[in-house]
């Protein structure tokens, strides 16, 4: 289960970010996930619930997933099309010489954080 490892790495990365920015607690995490990244959102959310509870920094943090549409570029006719509908073959010219422009991402877009200095304010 790929999602398990990914969640662990999200949490590691957030610890780095927290150190750099003086973050005390994270309230929400927004991930950008490409449509054809192969990640199963429900599984990712389950793993997040399981692991985030064990970690003080992200305990109770809300996970927000933003999906990035997949787009493929055709090098033969230089047009773009929806990857999910047409796959590897260009619907305009039937060429197979195509590549994915976007849709494979998996990145942390932003977090809502409570900074060290803000403590008490809440």
């Amino acid at each position: 289960m790929h999602e398990l490892g990914l969640v662990k790495h999200v949490i590691y990365t957030l610890h780095d970010v927290a150190k750099e920015n003086g973050v005390k607690h994270i309230g929400s995490v927004t991930l950008e996930i490409g449509e054809v990244s192969g990640i199963i959102n429900e599984q990712l959310a389950d793993c997040w619930d399981y692991f985030s509870k064990k970690d003080e920094l992200v305990c109770g943090a809300k996970l927000i997933i933003e999906t990035v549409d997949a787009v493929t570029f055709c090098t033969a006719c230089e047009r773009t099309y929806e990857t999910v509908t047409y796959g590897k073959t260009c619907p305009f010219c039937c060429s197979g010489e195509t590549y994915l422009l976007k849709g494979n991402e998996f990145s942390i877009k932003q977090i809502e954080a409570e900074l060290d200095a803000e403590s008490g304010e809440n």
Partner: peptide
């Protein structure tokens, strides 16, 4: 709460 933009890859 402050919003921090990251645009970081998970790896």
């Amino acid at each position: 709460m402050k919003v921090i933009e990251l645009k970081k890859t998970v790896t």
